[in-house]
Amino acid sequence: MIQALEADPSMDVILGMGAQTPTVPFERAEFVRADQTYSILNRIVKATQVDTILHTFMITNSATVPQRAMNEINVIGTMNLLAAAGASGSTVRHIVVKSSTLVYGSSARDPSTFHEDTPRGSPASNGVERALIEAESLVRDFSEDNPATLVTVLRFANVLGTHITTPISRNLSRPLCPAIFGFDPLLQFVEEDDVERALLHVTRGSIPGLYNVAGDGRLPWSEVARICGTRLIPVSPFSLLNIRPLARFFELPEELEDLLRFGRGVDTRRLASTGFKYNATSAGAVESFIRALRLRRQSGRKPNSYTYEHDVEQFFRHSPSVTGISDN
């Protein structure tokens, strides 16, 4: 994400923040390693006089962190960030929040397609969904309290692509992949480049509002597995007790259980009407994921789209003999 922002010369200062050190070095962005406590966020917002905050740290996969920590990050983190942004003297004009279509849930009562203002079909049954719903409601409150600040919430469908790993991508990259017996849900995916492009689109265009972000079209889970060349192993549909032990064997966090039963579809016309063009359809996202996986399998390394030559970069930055304008 930061790499994409760096490529845009209109961005003056880019400040990355996160609890972990970034895995790739940045060309011109600075990075602060910090967690989301209010005092730190508040000081950073004040000191840097930022005008735009991209809030992309929310966790949408319960397998990565324990429930408590996830709640801490998604709800308390969001709360602190919004409080810092809304503090007196804040220069923040635009906040972009990366949320997930998990807020719609997945149940038999659902309509086939969720619009941005369609209510959930059933109450949230798991922690991630509850946390995301709560975080979004904090964002809504913030935008009501601070009408001068633009607020954008992007709800992303399940992401697949060349680099990202999610429980779905890990399952699909194994020879055996879980399915719930007798169910073949329709799923919608978004390609990871489109995730980045959508965030950039609303950031550059200063577009406020609530938008679904997902590739066109929906695929049955069986077809996704077929495209990826993995074999589906049916898991008994009747008891969750049955699924729990298997969840360890496969990677099946609770928010996936319902999704693999009933699937989810979202309407993406609202974002398209702001002028955003998707590069990939849902099927295209699956295709891009499996092509990258094939390359990784056969060449034994990750495809590298971003090259950073530290020495060369340092030379450009600091050598007195560099006088012309470098290609940022």
Partner: peptide
Amino acid sequence: PRQSDVDEWG
């Protein structure tokens, strides 16, 4: 890359 003809209604 679609292989089946399942539409958005299933």
